[in-house]
Write a protein that binds this DNA or RNA. Structure first.
Length: 416
DNA sequence: GCTATACTAAACAGAG
DNA sequence: TCTCTGTTTAGTATAG
């Protein structure tokens, strides 16, 4: 069984038929949804695929979805877009507005939402432009979408925090340490568990939340993985120690792309990275949420934070001497320059990084323009990276399921 | 009855 | 000091 991904939140929910206003057309459009399920397919493929994709076997939740994806798509790569979900639901729901969210929940303002807290948090985070939110923004989002909580006892906030802390689907990403504004950390969805959450959402009476899924910013960005990011980070740390200029992320990406072009198809590289990401998690990891496994969970959870947080860490490893503002050299800015004020711009399109940049550019220091430009560049890189992480999670799941399916079919053919 | 999952409450510490 | 955030523990409810 998976982590706390909304197993039976609506069991006690007071809004049973709460309308399937799901934006299925959005799901249809969004392409690389790995959670598509063909209910008609027999279960068992995972067993067969064990040797081929070991890391999948540690995800017990996948046993429920071994019928995943006979139909799926990499929307951005020109493959046919077929959404079994769409078929299953059998609905032709009108496309949603720009917000991508129909607000079905508001129909039952006084009723308890049929989602578990983990799903609510997931939706909130996914709905944010940067796929990262501080707790306060998560509260706000939930309050906005589910007015029920406005009148509910404040204990729900405690539950939200409790969930964030305990549920390893969520990763804490430290904000910069400049401590100008904003308490606490940002919370992101661990890409590794994104499919789990999507799966859980799909199991909800109405899976409107699936419409939150957003494809990566660009096809190219699919080549960025947490491992890649952290490797760039490490390289730069070494370079910094050596007194060299840090390698900008974009440069590293270019090098990587040229490498993948030379030695294989880029998509292959992506999949390899995806695999490495997956294998970074202990196969024996306990995914339960029970008290007996809390400690193990916490270990696993905390260890998995590093991959994602490396994006954020990239702000921190540059010594002040290398700072752009001081010598005009390129590179990442130091942590003191990256403070975020979420109160002023709670994750607008500018996002975390750009907000940080705005802060830095207002201090009237030399190299202002250059810094601003660099900040924008970094902002774009981070956005790409964020999109890539999500994309990789989907690709990995798709691949695993495809392998499983192919193996099963092979075996069936051999038996014949 | 047992187990797993989810929710709630409470206490506590640290930071702003 | 107060509030917010994050962590931890304990207890309860529900479903399988």
């Amino acid at each position: 069984m998976g982590p706390v991904i909304g197993m039976t939140p609506e069991k006690r929910a007071e809004t049973p038929g709460a309308e399937k206003v799901a934006g299925l057309s959005q799901i249809y459009k969004m392409g690389s949804l790995p959670e598509a399920v063909d209910a008609a397919r027999p279960k068992a493929t995972l067993v067969d695929s064990e040797s081929a994709d070991d890391e999948l076997t540690n995800l017990n939740w996948l046993h429920e979805s071994t019928n995943l994806l006979t139909n799926f798509s990499f929307g951005s790569e020109g493959l046919p877009i077929v959404s079994p979900l769409y078929d299953i639901e059998g609905d032709d729901v009108p496309s949603l507005g720009p917000s991508c969210y129909p607000n079905p929940e508001k129909k039952s303002a006084t009723s308890k939402p049929p989602y578990s807290f983990s799903l609510l948090i997931y939706m909130a985070i996914e709905h944010s432009p940067n796929k990262c939110l501080p707790v306060k923004e998560i509260y706000s989002w939930i309050l906005d979408r589910f007015p029920y909580f406005a009148t509910a006892p404040t204990g729900w906030k405690n539950s939200v925090r409790h969930n964030l802390s305990l549920n390893k689907c969520f990763q804490k990403v430290e904000r910069s340490h400049g401590k100008v504004n904003g308490k606490g950390s940002l919370w992101c969805v661990d890409p590794e568990y994104k499919p789990n959450l999507m799966q859980a959402l799909k199991k909800q009476p109405f899976s409107s939340a699936l419409t939150f899924y957003t494809p990566p910013a660009s096809p190219q960005s699919g080549s960025l993985s947490p491992h890649f990011l952290s490797s760039v980070l490490k390289q730069n740390q070494v370079r910094t120690l050596k007194g060299e200029k840090p390698l900008p992320l974009k440069t590293a990406m270019q090098k990587k792309r040229s490498y993948s072009n030379a030695f294989g198809h880029p998509s292959t590289m992506r999949l390899q990275e995806s695999h490495s990401l997956a294998t970074s998690i202990d196969p024996k990891e306990d995914h339960n949420y029970s008290a007996s496994s809390m400690a193990a969970q916490r270990c696993a959870s905390r260890s998995s934070v590093s991959s994602l947080s490396s994006v954020d860490e990239s702000y921190e490893f540059i010594p002040k001497s290398n700072h752009v503002g001081s010598d005009g050299s390129e590179g990442f800015h130091s942590e003191e320059d990256t403070d975020v004020d979420y109160e002023d711009d709670p994750l607008g399109d500018s996002g975390y990084a750009s907000q940080a940049c705005a802060d830095t550019s207002d201090k009237g220091q030399p190299g202002k323009k250059m810094r601003k430009q660099l900040c924008q560049e970094i902002d774009e890189e981070l956005k790409e990276a964020a999109g890539s992480l999500l994309h990789l999670a989907g690709i990995r799941t798709c691949l695993g399921s495809l392998i499983s399916t192919a193996k099963t079919q092979n075996q069936k053919q051999r038996r014949k």
